[in-house]
Simulated scan of single mutants.
Amino acid sequence: MGDKPLGFRGSRSWIGCVEASLCLDHFRGPQGRLCHIPRGEGLLGELERLYSHFAGGGGPVMVGGDADAQSKALLGVCLGSGTEAYVLILDPHFWGMAKNPSELQAAGWVGWREVGTAFDRNSFYNLCLTSCNSPKQQHALD
């Protein structure tokens, strides 16, 4: 796409959410809407936006950070009473066919995690919220 130096092609270097969003646009995939969170503790303030994203039909949310180098994909949000909040996290490194959803959960590829333990409070995060650009979802995000 021309956004990286020539030596990047064929390397084992990683791309982040910004580059993933560029790829979605370049290859005419789902729209990727970026959201930057300066510190992980700020993710608590974005839970309503994430909830609206999923409730409006939004797709998986790619997550990348700096101090927290563990890539994640968010598939859902569960807001409990008070400050209780959970995110459904998928490890995007899984490939192949699972026999059933329980197999993925038992192996740690997917599961609900409490927001306070799923993210490093001191790391910044970029989120790439994917959508098919439905009017209902656009309204939920604005």
Rank of each mutant, 00 (worst) to 15 (best):
L90W: 09
P60Y: 10
L79R: 15
V115C: 01
V61E: 00
F124P: 09
G56Y: 04
L6M: 10
L79E: 08
L50P: 04
H53I: 06
G65A: 02
Y86E: 04
F8Y: 15
L141T: 02
N126S: 02
L47K: 11
Y125R: 06
F27P: 04
K99L: 08
L74Y: 03
E46W: 06
A107L: 15
L79K: 14
R28Y: 09
V63W: 02
W95N: 12
G82L: 03
N100P: 05
K72R: 13
V110M: 15
Y86C: 00
G58Q: 04
A98E: 04
M97N: 14
M97L: 12
R39M: 00
A98T: 03
V61M: 00
R28Q: 13
G80C: 00
Q105F: 03
H93L: 14
H53S: 09
A69N: 03
L44G: 13
M62K: 03
I89P: 05
G42Q: 02
L24M: 08
P135I: 09
G57M: 10
Y51G: 03
Q138S: 15
Q105P: 03
F119H: 03
H36C: 11
G65S: 01
P30M: 14
C17W: 04
S11P: 14
A85T: 02
R12D: 11
L24S: 13
D91A: 01
H139Y: 07
G40Y: 01
E84V: 11
P101L: 08
E46D: 07
S71E: 12
M1R: 13
H36S: 10
T83F: 02
L47Q: 09
L129R: 02
S102E: 08
S21D: 07
L34T: 06
G108F: 01
W112M: 07
A98G: 01
A106F: 05
G108E: 00
N100Q: 07
